[in-house]
Simulated assay, not measured.
Amino acid sequence: MTKIYELSEKKRLETIEFLTLYKNENALPESWLRGRLDEINRLREFIPTTEELIFGARVAWRNSNRCIGRLFWNSLQVFDERQLETEEEIYRALLRHIEYAANGGKIRPAITIFKADCIRIWNYQLLRYAGYETADGIIGDPDSIELTKICEALGWKGKQTPFDILPLVIQIGTNTPRLFDIPESYVLEVVIRHPQNEELARLNLKWYAVPIVSNMKLSVGGIEFQAAPFNGWYMGSEIGARNFADVTRYNLLPAVAEIMGLDIKSNITLWKDRALVELNVAVLHSFKEDGVSIVDHHTAAQQFKLFEKQEEVADRQVTGNWSWLIPPVSPATTHIFHKPIENLIKKPNYFYQKNPF
């Protein structure tokens, strides 16, 4: 087997495996692979071309075991920004990503890939609400308390509302991380209201339109891109059954149940279930009314079934993390709940990484 200098054995094998996959799926001749490996030997490192990077990012989505929305993996827009050197350049690229993805509500899947091994974005998502610990309790998103404190220590001052968008925190190498505010004009948000119960509006809820994950790394051919924010669009239950409902997040089920006049003293009334469904109805209704892309969990499961069929035709094994693929609302009503699936990790892929803070 061809030796690739300057790479560890593990990375060498990953590079060969990736380029072989790229050759096969693009119907390239064997001579192309030999020539590409010879080129890597001469350079003594593997630097993916833009075309290889695009392919790798899309296949990484296809291989993402926790994602139910993989039917659309080949539509991912890839922005290759490995040439950027400064925090200001990275910031402008992130704003461009936010604007492109939002697209006035017609959400477009996208990823922006920065130089490997030296750039980190500290945010969990590019758009994320702050969380404040106060004498009267937590205001905002409890999951953001730690990063909010860091932003404040770096000089940021929020308004202490439940929905303050955190600034972007960008770090290059060992440099001190820098803060960049996201202009309000870039933040598309949806005000949450219920199609029948107008009283729900008094909770003054809203959520941002695009979930742009920015704390995961992209692994392609043995190269790890630690800053590669990417997005699809929301499944309604991500907001209605997790962000709003989890007791460690906004914990809104008791407040919704009160508005609905439900008896919360006994579990036998299923007040949590009833409140959860209506909260999810409100999220889906609000996004649809505002013309913002979103998918309900039943449609998402049907789309995943089409993905499974496509992969079967392509003679590829579908892998997945069952506990993540089943929706948090009524999972037994989807085919995924009743179907075993192997949680086998394939590369290219996206992986969680240790927080930089």
Rank of each mutant, 00 (worst) to 15 (best):
P327A: 08
I138M: 05
G173I: 05
I16S: 03
G320K: 11
D263A: 10
I165G: 03
R249M: 06
K106D: 15
V190W: 05
F230R: 01
V59I: 15
K149H: 12
H285R: 05
L276V: 04
G137C: 03
D181A: 12
N197Y: 10
L127G: 03
P183N: 08
Y129K: 08
P229F: 06
F114R: 10
L94A: 07
Q302H: 11
R12G: 09
C67Y: 08
N204P: 00
K157Y: 00
T148Y: 03
F55Y: 15
E17N: 14
R202F: 00
K23Q: 15
Q226G: 08
F163R: 06
A245N: 09
G222Q: 02
N251Q: 03
Y91N: 12
G232K: 05
W233G: 11
L253V: 05
A153G: 08
R242V: 15
A130F: 01
A301C: 11
P328W: 07
S330I: 07
G104T: 02
F46L: 02
E146W: 00
G173E: 12
I182Q: 04
E133Y: 01
E9A: 07
T50I: 05
Y124C: 08
N63A: 10
Y352E: 02
C67V: 08
R36D: 00
E87W: 00
R249S: 06
L33S: 05
N321Y: 12
H97L: 15
V213C: 04
N355M: 06
C67T: 09
G232D: 09
K23S: 11
A27N: 14
N63P: 09
R108Q: 15
F225P: 05
E198Q: 15
F225S: 05
L37K: 01
V247I: 10
V313L: 13
V247P: 05
E81K: 14
L28Q: 07
P167K: 11
S31A: 09
E45Y: 11
F351C: 00
P183I: 04
Q77T: 13
G173N: 12
T174W: 02
Y250E: 06
V59E: 14
Y132K: 08
A241E: 04
N349D: 10
R108P: 04
Y132N: 05
E14S: 07
A332E: 15
Y124Q: 11
E224M: 02
E25D: 14
A282G: 08
G221K: 04
I336K: 12
L262C: 09
T269I: 08
E89C: 03
I16G: 02
L154F: 08
L94Y: 07
E258R: 15
E198S: 15
A153P: 01
A332Y: 09
P229W: 08
N231H: 05
D263R: 12
A60C: 10
K159C: 01
L188T: 06
T49L: 06
F163A: 08
F79R: 08
M235I: 15
E6R: 07
E89Y: 05
N103I: 00
K115W: 03
L71S: 02
L19M: 07
I326Y: 10
E81D: 13
G69V: 08
V187Q: 12
